[in-house]
């Protein structure tokens, strides 16, 4: 039973990471019906942005936990957000927007292109920025005193401090998103646009701006996820966005794509299923090497039995 609680905590923290990324897929899909494959790379770029912020701050190593948690961490998050949001807005403006009326295949292929391009740009050129290490191999992520590598016990269950951070970040972001969507003008414009872009335009809503804010919100959350990922695993590399993006998309579909709450629930469920699978599936197939496979099997099962997702999709089928 202890093992169960331990895996539940592990699963929730992993799931919170997925959920933070999944929101980006779901917000954009809800509004422009585009699967932004490059979102995983936005997450990766956010992590590199946070890392770069740390380097720009003079690569501080020794500090009190107060300074780390209330100074370094927010600075890295903001730095990561600036980078990820800028990249996301640039891709929207330069690559996706011109294709808004094109057949659906065109933006999908563009998204693949952007994804490959961003990975390769980081791999090839991150190291050429003065002061930055070569990104062809994994880069150790800066230690945030008090969070990275620290843990505490509840009974027999070990809880990583970084897990607490990820879950707390998700909670804060969910509240923020709820407020943003329901209580702000931009948020309501987003809802209107997702239901009927043409009418929204006639009602005086600047649809371009709404779409950009969707990309921006998703990218900002992805940057937080990037920092969380860095603290959890201790390093970042240019490939990290691929699998994380895939998992986050699975989470978004699981919850019901286009549905923000769905992305959160889907992420958490996916994380828990993954960690439980590695513990409770007997024999060789329960080994950690298979956990990605189980996540994927879950995606297929959802598509077969509940294509609208757990909480119901805004847009079920627009094939």
């Amino acid at each position: 039973m202890d093992l169960f609680w331990q895996q539940l905590i592990n699963g929730l923290s992993l799931g919170a990471l997925y959920a933070l990324i999944a929101v980006g897929y779901t917000v954009v899909y809800g509004i422009v019906q585009l699967i932004n494959f490059a979102h995983g790379e936005i997450f990766m770029v956010g992590a590199f942005g946070a890392f770069a912020t740390w380097v720009v701050m003079g690569s501080p190593k020794q500090m009190s936990w107060q300074a780390a948690v209330f100074g370094l961490l927010p600075a890295m998050i903001v730095g990561g957000m600036i980078v990820s949001v800028s990249v996301a807005l640039l891709t929207e403006r330069l690559a996706y927007r011109p294709l808004r009326d094109a057949p659906r295949l065109a933006p999908l292929i563009t998204a693949i292109g952007i994804s490959v391009f961003l990975q390769e740009v980081v791999r090839l050129f991150f190291g050429t920025i003065p002061g930055m290490p070569d990104a062809k191999r994994a880069i150790p992520f800066p230690t945030v005193t008090g969070i990275s590598g620290r843990s505490f016990q509840i009974g027999t269950v070990t809880v990583q401090n970084s897990a607490v951070f990820t879950i707390a970040a998700l909670a804060v972001c969910t509240v923020f998103l709820w407020f943003f969507v329901n209580r702000t003008k931009t948020g309501r414009a987003m809802v209107a646009t997702s239901q009927d872009p043409d009418t929204a335009r006639l009602m005086g809503i600047n649809v371009d701006r709404v779409i950009m804010s969707a990309f921006a919100v998703g990218a900002a959350l992805a940057a937080i996820a990037g920092v969380a990922h860095g603290m959890r695993y201790g390093n970042i590399d240019f490939r990290m966005g691929f699998l994380a993006g895939l998992k986050a998309f699975t989470a978004a579909v699981l919850g019901g794509i286009g549905n923000i709450n769905g992305a959160v629930v889907g992420g958490l469920v996916l994380g828990v299923v993954e960690s439980m699978a590695t513990t409770f599936i007997p024999g060789q197939f329960g080994s950690p090497a298979w956990k990605d496979v189980w996540a994927f099997v879950l995606l297929i099962l959802v598509l077969v039995f509940r294509p609208q997702g757990l909480l119901g999709a805004k847009v079920v089928d627009r094939a």
């Binding site: 019906q33 699967i35 494959f37 659906r104 999908l108 691929f242 699998l243 895939l246 998309f249 699975t250 579909v253 090497a289 298979w290 990605d292 496979v293 994927f296 995606l299 297929i300 598509l303 077969v304 294509p307 089928d317 627009r318 094939a319």
Partner: peptide
Amino acid sequence: PTLRVSGDYLAIVTLAFGEIFRI
């Protein structure tokens, strides 16, 4: 399972499939 739903899903499911194959 995928083709019944939507063309968009196929793209990502096949992407996942490629990764699963490798794993």
